[in-house]
Amino acid sequence: MNEYALQLKNITKKYHDGESENIVLKDISLNVKHGEFVAIVGPSGSGKSTLLSIAGMLLSPNSGEIVLNGKCLSDEKQKNWTKIRRKQIGFIFQNHQLLPYLTVEDQLKLVKNMNKKVSLDVNETLKELGLKDCAKKYPSNMSGGEKQRIAIARAFMNNPDVILADEPTASLDGTRGRQVVEMIKKEVMKHNKAAVMVTHDERILDLVDVIYRMDKGILVRDN
């Protein structure tokens, strides 16, 4: 096993706006080990979400390399990116993005059916995360905290190497937000995953292993 689950090497992302050029990410590098929980904080518009999208292979950089488990994926054909994401990356979105017409149990089964190599059991996963009572519920019958916890369960369902969380506490109060991040931390440690969380919430930073701060497209590690 490679020491690092995720590496971003000299990532630059820029957009053209007429004749002007807007550089969103400036030569950014990031290394995340297996079992390590990393937070990226910074003001709106600093480039945090763009960096997360590139790490999750949802967006291409203008230059630089994306490396998962020691394998450089930047030169992979775009048509292979979906397959790589499905097998190696789990996403936790700010608005959880649950399908309204599926029960919790069926949400997780859908993920499992998309990746035939997944060995995780849906009911065991729900039980482990304290969500067994939600198995037959639809999203409309759950609280915001429950929905976000289901989103976490879904992210871990395909047994990915890397978890990417985009503002997972944004729609929750302080107590529920902390519970959600504690849940991510527990699963990262237990299953030796790498996790990167973009957040504005400074109150939960004591739960992560490493903190980076981003401003104007530049990423700096906290001492």
Rank of each mutant, 00 (worst) to 15 (best):
M1E: 09
Y4W: 07
L6E: 05
Q7D: 09
N10E: 15
Y15M: 08
N22C: 10
I23Y: 07
L25D: 01
S29R: 02
S29H: 05
V32L: 07
K33R: 14
E36N: 02
F37N: 02
V41N: 01
K48F: 09
S49V: 06
S49P: 04
L52E: 00
I54P: 04
S60H: 12
P61A: 13
G64N: 06
I66K: 12
G70Q: 10
S74D: 07
E76V: 13
E76Y: 14
N80H: 13
W81E: 04
Q94E: 08
N95M: 14
N95H: 13
H96Q: 09
P100C: 10
Y101I: 10
T103L: 08
L110A: 09
V111M: 03
K112F: 00
N113D: 11
K117Y: 02
L120G: 04
E124C: 11
T125F: 07
K127N: 07
K132H: 12
A135D: 01
K137H: 12
K137Q: 10
Y138C: 08
S140H: 14
M142P: 01
K147G: 05
A153H: 02
A155T: 03
V162I: 11
V162S: 08
L164K: 06
A165C: 07
D166R: 06
E167D: 10
D173R: 07
Q179I: 11
E182Y: 07
M183G: 02
M183K: 06
I184S: 04
K185V: 08
K190A: 05
K193S: 05
T199S: 05
E202C: 11
I204K: 11
L205T: 01
V208Q: 03
V210P: 01
M214T: 04
I218G: 05
R221H: 10
